[in-house]
């Protein structure tokens, strides 16, 4: 007995929503003819130019963060500071409560990621390996909501949160972002690629469904869990609109909100603004470099961000 959907339309819909080549591992292309030397040189020149285009803003950001304010805008452009103003990286911590912002961002990102991965993979097991009435209808509802822009229902959410007294608490954003349909969808797409024989065999061996999930499916889908965790972490860390709407007091602010507010208040402190920007990006750079293949795999599978 295979556990495919009772409604073929559900799988078709899920397939249509997932990018067509979902689940394929992106590889360096090992096939096809080698490029001719002239074309190869041209390609490298093009790629170098594009890399420059990507890196110039980052380079400018780091370079400006090490300048005095009046050196940031100069004619001609100073790519390397004449004098490295390292003190920017010391002073910023006292200019704005950056440490609090970082702590808040970290707390929200970790909590939301944990809940999203846990409830998402748990629900995905129900949607892919169990068979019961109403399952497929429910899954279609999940998928459909992914296409609805958040702006379409953020006002009722806000009213609910206001009535529950949760506006201006971290809990509001945790609740809003931890139970998204995205995690369920991403994990289900992975779980569908695991042969049902595996869970069938475990059932025959007397394992109950919860243990099958914990002992067999979870260990098998570690890359998927990593993808979901990283995508959720980064999108929570970078989220602006949610915290912007819900957090009014300064001590709840995330790095993004804090940075934006700093820019609004001291718009001539160019160097310090860049210092704050660099610091806000560093955690993401670390997370990204540690797990970049999971990011790219996660996107290639789901086609969605968190």
């Amino acid at each position: 007995m295979s556990v495919t959907s009772t409604l073929p339309e559900v799988d078709r819909l899920a397939d249509e929503l997932a990018p067509p080549a979902a689940g394929r591992r992106l590889t360096a292309k090992r096939r096809g003819p080698r490029l001719k030397p002239a074309k190869r040189v041209l390609l490298y020149v093009l790629l170098a130019a594009l890399t420059l285009l990507i890196f110039v803003p980052f380079f400018w950001m780091v370079s400006s963060s090490l300048k005095h304010n009046n050196q940031v805008f100069s004619i001609p452009i100073q790519w390397i500071p004449t004098e490295f103003v390292w003190s920017n990286y010391v002073d910023i911590w006292t200019r704005i409560p950056l440490l609090t912002y970082l702590k808040n961002s970290l707390f929200l990102s970790v909590t939301i990621t944990f809940l999203q991965v846990l409830t998402g993979s748990f629900a995905a097991y129900g949607f892919s390996k169990m068979r019961f009435k109403g399952r497929d209808v429910l899954f279609v509802i999940y998928i459909a909501t992914i296409a609805v822009p958040w702006q379409a229902y953020m006002i009722p959410q806000y009213i609910m949160m206001q009535n529950a007294g949760l506006v201006n608490t971290h809990l509001s954003i945790i609740l809003l972002q931890a139970f998204g349909a995205f995690g369920v969808f991403l994990m289900r797409q992975y779980y569908m690629t695991i042969p049902d024989e595996l869970s069938e065999a475990a059932r025959i061996d007397g394992l109950n469904e919860y243990r099958i999930w914990w002992r067999i499916i979870l260990p098998l889908t570690k890359p998927a869990l990593a993808s979901l965790a990283l995508l959720t972490f980064v999108s929570t860390w970078n989220d602006y609109m949610g915290p912007f709407i819900y957090f009014t007091s300064n001590d709840l602010w995330t790095v993004q909100i804090g940075l934006r507010s700093f820019v609004g208040q001291f718009d001539a402190e160019y160097a310090m603004i860049m210092t704050g920007s660099v610091i806000s990006v560093i955690p993401i750079v670390i997370v990204f470099l540690l797990g970049q293949r999971f990011f790219i795999q996660g996107i290639a599978t789901s086609g969605l961000k968190g």
């Binding site: 970078n238 602006y240 790095v255 993004q256 940075l259 920007s277 660099v278 806000s280 993401i284």
Partner: peptide, 8 residues
């Protein structure tokens, strides 16, 4: 992060 991108 989008704020950093926008600011830069």
């Amino acid at each position: 992060s989008l704020v950093a991108v926008a600011v830069v």
